[in-house]
Design a protein around this nucleic acid. Sequence first.
DNA 1: CCGGATCCGAATCGATACTG
DNA 2: CAGTATCGATTCGGATCCGG
Lengths: 240, 240
Amino acid sequence: MAARGYGQDSGLATAVERVGERWALLVVRDLLVGPRRYTDLRRGLPRIPTNILAARLKELQEAGVVRRVPLMNCGLVYELTPYGRALEPVVLALERWGLEAPGAPQPEGGDAVSADALTMTLRSLFRPEVAASVPDADYELHLDPVVLRVRVEGDALRIAQLAPSAVPVGGRMPEGEPDVALALASVAALRGLASGALTPADALDEGVARILRGEGTLIERFAATFRLAPGQASRPSGER
Amino acid sequence: MAARGYGQDSGLATAVERVGERWALLVVRDLLVGPRRYTDLRRGLPRIPTNILAARLKELQEAGVVRRVPLMNCGLVYELTPYGRALEPVVLALERWGLEAPGAPQPEGGDAVSADALTMTLRSLFRPEVAASVPDADYELHLDPVVLRVRVEGDALRIAQLAPSAVPVGGRMPEGEPDVALALASVAALRGLASGALTPADALDEGVARILRGEGTLIERFAATFRLAPGQASRPSGER
DNA sequence: CCGGATCCGAATCGATACTG
DNA sequence: CAGTATCGATTCGGATCCGG
């Protein structure tokens, strides 16, 4: 027993012992969007075995990362503790690193997108300095099964999940029409826009991006606001 | 087969598929200090099974993170590719998060410290803004088996490993005497100083820190320069 | 439906031994 | 020095089952 440790007394070894197990950081990522129920987590992580999810949640609780909160009107949710929320810079940095392609763009067939995953991807790409220097904008972003309402106000970012499951996150349901509704064919398209490998014009030409409604030129502003900063994968956590 | 994926098309899922396996980030951390030979990595990670190290190195190469470089005078080293070096913000952020204690200070008995681990811990704690605002300093840091020469010049940090294995990193062997040589009893002491839970004066009183030679008051400057910034675990990668 | 617990085969990990 | 081979101990994945 006790043979599972790394035998190292360092911050990194401690960290990976706490959140390094399979699926753990994916669970944390979804919880960074907001408190979630057991079933919500399963929906967001379709391929996680139920016993593994239960085991991870137990371990994350023991590590002080996650807290189990009973809901007044029946049911319960899991939410991050302050210590767990301190993982946000880690998750955002890993997210950005994963978005950079080393060479071959992997096929990614059959892989789906979840609302929470896309929400955190956008958060990781958000550039407050750029946002502050352009007019406010209100986007509706469609990516296969998920629809997000993405509002950029000053240097702040707010995202609500319209589909699936129309549960508004971080506030009430957004009223009014977005400035533009745009649809991306895949995460690869977002990856391309974010890295600069794909220009908005090319994306529209090739059909990997489409304007559903509204002012189509705003796609340029979108691409400038959500961008992988070259040579600087880590930024101070910024928003929220 | 292919059942090992996370079935998610997001940056985080991609990232953990590439560097999420056991030991992988520890290997990357050691390589962030500099190119290392197979045997060096084994020494720095005493509990890694040799077959696992071989497997990780193979996977990291296929992921484009690590490169195998033959040495002219016999032997070979592993080194990070530019894409692998882009993991530095991730490793530093995880390192900082792991240094924060959630509640109970885990025993950590029998765990050792390696020169590379301590080097990266110091890098993760380094605050360039503080360093730039105080006079330059030249520390010799002893922590059980490892001895580091830590030079702070302006807002830059340079670390050489004096022991074990006296292989200077990132330059030639430092000449001259350090301003102060100080010894810490354990990583827990460094953790305490970095978090502010332990003041330098208390550390000296309790004997978890000792001045071996030189100007003892410099421990204050050391503690100010290598510090876990409260409420801001992520900083732009900064140095180097 | 929600929140898991249980069982089992498959893949991975850990420890040791061995080799070019 | 730089790994490969082997084998038992864990963990993971997939499915099913169960109490509210």
